[in-house]
Design a protein around this nucleic acid. Sequence first.
DNA 1: ATCATTACGTTCCATAATGGAACTAACCTA
DNA 2: TAGGTTAGTTCCATTATGGAACGTAATGAT
Lengths: 185, 185
Amino acid sequence: MRWQDIDQQVCAIARTLSIVGDRWTLLIVRDAFLGTRRFADFQRQLDISRHRLADRLEKLVTAGVMERRPYQERPVRHAYHLTQMGIELYPVMLSLARWGNDWLDDGSGPPVEYVHRACGKIMQAELHCSECEAPLNPHDVIPIIGPGLRTALARRGGTGEAENRLPPTLREELLAERRKDLQGG
Amino acid sequence: MRWQDIDQQVCAIARTLSIVGDRWTLLIVRDAFLGTRRFADFQRQLDISRHRLADRLEKLVTAGVMERRPYQERPVRHAYHLTQMGIELYPVMLSLARWGNDWLDDGSGPPVEYVHRACGKIMQAELHCSECEAPLNPHDVIPIIGPGLRTALARRGGTGEAENRLPPTLREELLAERRKDLQGG
DNA sequence: ATCATTACGTTCCATAATGGAACTAACCTA
DNA sequence: TAGGTTAGTTCCATTATGGAACGTAATGAT
């Protein structure tokens, strides 16, 4: 499978990466979160080639993650702003940042820290369960087949082709294992 | 700047992406979370070229995200397991999955859902503040300069070179803005 | 003993993505 | 009129990737 076809997979992670999984793309989003808006500023701060930057911004705009807003006429100049879709990538960004701080520190501490405006403290981003609010432990999160995958399963006939586009979650033995986990645990 | 040099940036996100920001890498990690361990299984499920897969697994092992464990002698066969470092990528994976579910649904619902073993309910991963436990809103998280960046700033002489490796967070006007946010809000 | 199969790679090469520098376009300032 | 600013585009050499074939070390079938 070619990378450009991964959005064909029936998998939310693959679909997400088909948009933001390219080189530079998440760094552009990072800078957008930090306030960068203009082409030249992205280019200077990332030290990316103008070529690549134009290409990535175009893709982000097409995907709906960013939007071009004119900030002056004569000549028309556009700024790139995160849309709501883009802003909602912040859990991804905070999670990436936290992992980098936890595992790739060169000994001098976090380059950037985050203050929670509500409580005023320097914080870490923690995952919690939306239902019981408890902090999440990786071993307590059990993936199960969802409606999107069920639909895809029902659709696949003998084509064999579609089967290749399903994520490994599909595998019967794994699903059985998960169900046992759920019942037994 | 070349992509291979982004780990030189004094930025946790850039450092993280220097390890997991390559094509395929996060999909390999995804499959590892779902229980895939062997070379041939990764290859089949991802439909990636053997070449690329060998390369990515090697990089993940070198970085410490995965480890090779022999599962049989004669001939020696290795399985690839997530290390603790790899397991702690789960907030990244869950955040990517949630964004894909929220924004890239084709109308048939989430391909995969997650059950929280502790409360038994289908859940969403939510970011909370580690200090006050409240759910995080993107506008309530204020990035400020941290010790790692302060050190890097102190180190840079007139080299100019090092300056290019600092993230845009460095920019004085932006930091001033953040400080105002903190005091005024 | 010979042949097929499994598992895990590596090699080779055509194609696609990237980086760097130069070029264009539309305006502004001195 | 010369040079500066901003946002791109074009061109081309260098890298990365995908696909298929090949290599190796074993097991199992005939």
